[in-house]
Every structure is written in C-alpha cells, then in structure tokens.
Amino acid sequence: MNPSHLTGPVLVIGTGLLGASIGLGLRARGIDVVLSDTSPSAQAVAVDIGAGRGLVHSEALEPELIVVAAPPDVTADVVAAALAEYPGAVVVDIASVKAGILARLRRLPGVSAAELSRYVGTHPMAGSERSGPVAARAELFSSTPWVLCPSEESSAAAIKVAHSLAIDLGSVVFRFTPDDHDEAVALVSHLPQIMASLVASRLQDSPAHALSLAGNGLRDVTRIAASNPAMWVQILGANAAKLVEIMRGVRADVNRLISTLEAPTAPGAHLDLARLISEGNAGQTRIPGKHGGPAQAYAWLTILVEDKPGQIARLLTEIGDIGINVEDLRLDHSAGREVGMVELSVVPNKRVALVQELTDRGWKVIL
C-alpha cells in the first residue's frame, strides 16, 4: 500500500456517488473514514460497501479533513456548520459550482475570515450517469482532473490538505479561481449536458422504426442525457449566469443554420453549411487527446465479431499479438443480426498492416 499524504480521520458529509467513492478510495489507502448523511439508508449502504464507518455523534471526533459532498443549494450551509463544529479541521466541498458557494459563505453570519482560512472549494471532474452509493467506485477519480479553487482567505495549510486529498485519490490537480472554474465548466460540462438532453428529448415521441436505425452517433451524443434531473436543476441554476452567455452563442448558430436550411439551394448555402461543419472540426481538435496531449487524428476501422462470449477478448488479444496499440475503441451491434461491430482506432501508419493481419486471421474487416 502506498503511503498517504493524509493521516485522517476524514469525515465525509454526503454519501452519494462522489462522497461514497471518496470514502472507498481513502479506505483503500488505510485512512479512517467517517460517514454522515441526512439519509440513514444512503449512509447505511455506503457503510455496507466499505466506504467508511458511520458517524457516532457521541464520539469526540477530531477530523483532519471534512469533505462536504452535499447538493449545491445547501453546500454553503453545510460547510459553515462543519467549520463551526470542528475548529481544527480543514473543510473542502466538491460541488460543481464554486463562486456562488463562496459568496454565500462570506455573507453567512458567524463565518469569519479566520474560519474561511480553513475552507477550500474543490471540484473533482468525475462522475457517472448512475447515482447513489451503489454506483460508487474507489477508482472513480483516478487520472481525472480535480480543480482546487481557493479563496483569498484560504491558508496555505488548508490548500495543501485539499491538494493531498486529490493526489491520494489519483487525480490530476488543477488550480482555478472560482469565477474561472464556473466559466470553464459551463463550457465543457454544463453545455454538453444541455445539448445531450435537448437532442434526446426529440426522441420521446419518435416512431420505433426510426429509432431502430440508431447507431453509435446517437448513443454518443445522448449518453449523458440519462443523468439525474434533480442534480442538474441545481447545477444549472447555480451557474446560470455563466451558461446563458454560451447558450446565446449556440442560439445564434442554430438560427444561422435554420436560415440556411430554409433555403438550401440559395447562393452561399452550401458554403455556409461547410463552414459550420468546419467550425465544429476546428473546435473538436482543440479537445486534449490521449494522456492530455494534443489531439491526434487516428485511423478507424470496424471489425465484425460474433455476438457470443469471448469474441472481443480474442480480437484484442490477437491485435496485441500483432503488436499494434489500440488508441480508442467503441462497440455497436448490427440491427437485426447477432453480430457485434468493434470500431477501433490506431495510428494511421499501422492501419493497412492491421487490416491485412486481421483479414489473414479470418476476421471480417469493414473499411
């Protein structure tokens, strides 16, 4: 077991997906984790899965760190209560918005600058469409960004403890101001959620025969539309000011597209459509690629596999034997046939060799 930066105990307030996952991750490092939740059943499930032990209010607990994993609309109040109840502890929250929480903390009576010196706002950029402690995983934060958003009042010691939490859970640490954080997540997290939900909402009354043609494109775009509505109502409301500016830009682009499609044969219409797609190409290439480096253009190919146990494992084993690294992989199924379609990408100069090797070994490759 690797030595931990934290010594504990760590009190986690809120045992949903993120809170329980933090507990599991810290317990895996041998740290004493104490769990507290307003829902006794959620807390009991988190205890049962090994995320920590339940808080006993008669216990004279002196936590090194308190992690507030509460909904955004109550986070500031929970943080304030934790600062007051445990004067020796550093308190962090993991809510997905930061500026509003800090502003409310500063307005709350009884929250002094001295107490705020022990508080650091943070945001682990990890999650799942599933919610609750039953979906928790100790590895949820591994290699994912964890943003520290210290305030002017945050002490160096408190920032160090917050940094240690992220490192102990395997995250990659970033440091933003609260305002810069909220602006960034509005673009890279909240906007994709809205767009996925808007696209998926068009499917509600669609005929079944149309949806039978759906492939990975639709699934990729709408995957996060399965997220928890109650959670997102709070997130979007808390970051509305940052998000609305981005949405105005999206509205302008949609209006422009509608105008072009209303007269698709008009002079300049084809050029405008091409520019729209090219602008998307340019934006997509700016998304960091493998290991956080610059995005690369990989070569894709599709291999048909029988829809039975062990076929995908056999395919990947043979590709490994060939000595070519798979950069990315997606799985789809052929409509009406018991055949799976494995889409994978490799560096471009390996594509021809891989196609030939797989074909020679009896695999059906679609170019």
Rank of each mutant, 00 (worst) to 15 (best):
V346H: 06
I66Q: 05
Q284I: 06
L367E: 14
L257K: 04
V56W: 05
P178A: 10
S278Q: 14
L316F: 08
T177Y: 10
S206G: 03
L18Y: 05
G280R: 12
A136H: 08
R351M: 10
T302F: 06
V12K: 09
I303K: 06
S212E: 14
G88K: 06
A84E: 15
V233N: 07
Q204V: 13
I94G: 09
V91K: 10
L261P: 02
I366P: 00
R118A: 04
S334L: 14
P309E: 03
H5K: 12
T122W: 11
V254A: 07
E115P: 00
I277Y: 13
I159M: 03
I322D: 00
D182T: 09
E64T: 10
A299K: 09
H123M: 10
V250G: 03
A252I: 01
D332K: 02
I324R: 09
A226H: 08
L276C: 11
P229Y: 10
S201K: 11
D37L: 06
D272L: 13
I303N: 08
Q284G: 05
I13G: 04
A196V: 04
Q234P: 05
E262H: 06
K98M: 03
L165K: 08
R107H: 13
G217K: 02
S36V: 02
L116T: 10
A184D: 02
S164K: 01
P71V: 07
A295D: 01
V221A: 12
N216L: 15
E62M: 12
A42H: 15
Y119I: 04
R361N: 07
L65D: 03
W300I: 01
Q193G: 03
T260I: 14
G25M: 07
T38P: 08
A162D: 11
G249E: 14
G292F: 02
H163K: 11
Q311L: 00
A266P: 12
I22E: 07
A240N: 04
A136F: 07
A282R: 14
W363P: 01
L198A: 15
G215M: 05
D307T: 02
H57R: 14
E115W: 04
E153H: 11
F141R: 09
A46S: 04
G170M: 05
V185T: 13
A241R: 12
A20C: 02
V250L: 14
